[in-house]
């Protein structure tokens, strides 16, 4: 067994298990930590596929910044396991049933249509920072700049939403 293959199976198992734990752990803080594990394993997948740039971005932005934000919000609200009421059994059953059937359907759909064996691991350097950066700052410079405006507006929006409204507080 090639090292890549071993790594693939290990990371896949880790990702799936951590994802399960995100959904099923009672404590939101645990959920956040498990989600970070999912992101780390996905980063591992990126590295196997030689997508170095995305691996780094995923690690820094998702596992770092975004998850810290989540953690911060949860701690800020002082949520713990007991504070969250559970949904009814029927609802959970229906949810799992529909999720499962969606997976079945998707697999049934994709099994036949993309049934060919195709090499994923192999030569290629498009995922390197140098190559992607070149394309990003030449062909895709306009969307890139526009995304900075998006960030700016998101920031302004967050500040506006987070501002305490003087009169409209429901006790």
């Amino acid at each position: 067994m090639h090292i890549n293959e071993i790594l693939f199976w290990f990371l896949t198992a880790l990702a799936l298990f951590s994802a399960m734990m995100v959904v099923f752990s009672k404590n939101p803080v645990h959920s956040v930590l498990w989600l970070i594990m999912v992101f780390i394993s996905i980063t591992g997948h990126y590295i196997i596929m030689n997508a170095q740039f995305l691996a780094i971005v995923n690690m820094i932005v998702y596992a770092g910044a975004i998850m810290v934000l989540f953690l911060f919000v949860i701690m800020f609200m002082n949520l713990n396991a007991e504070s969250e009421p559970q949904k009814s059994k029927w609802m959970k059953f229906a949810a799992v049933l529909s999720g499962g059937s969606l997976m079945l359907i998707l697999i049934a759909a994709l099994k036949d249509n993309v049934g060919f064996i195709s090499s994923v691991h192999g030569e290629g350097s498009i995922g390197l920072i140098k190559n992607l950066g070149k394309v990003l700052f030449t062909e895709y410079v306009v969307p890139f700049e526009i995304s900075s405006i998006l960030f700016l507006s998101a920031m302004v929006g967050a500040v506006v939403l987070g501002k305490k409204e003087p009169s409209n507080t429901v006790s």
Partner: peptide, 20 residues
């Protein structure tokens, strides 16, 4: 919101089934 999402899900599944 939960029921909305559930309905959405079921509809998506149905779409897939029809499509397939």
């Amino acid at each position: 919101v939960g029921s909305y999402i559930l309905i959405m899900m079921v509809s998506i599944i149905l779409f897939f089934i029809f499509q397939l």
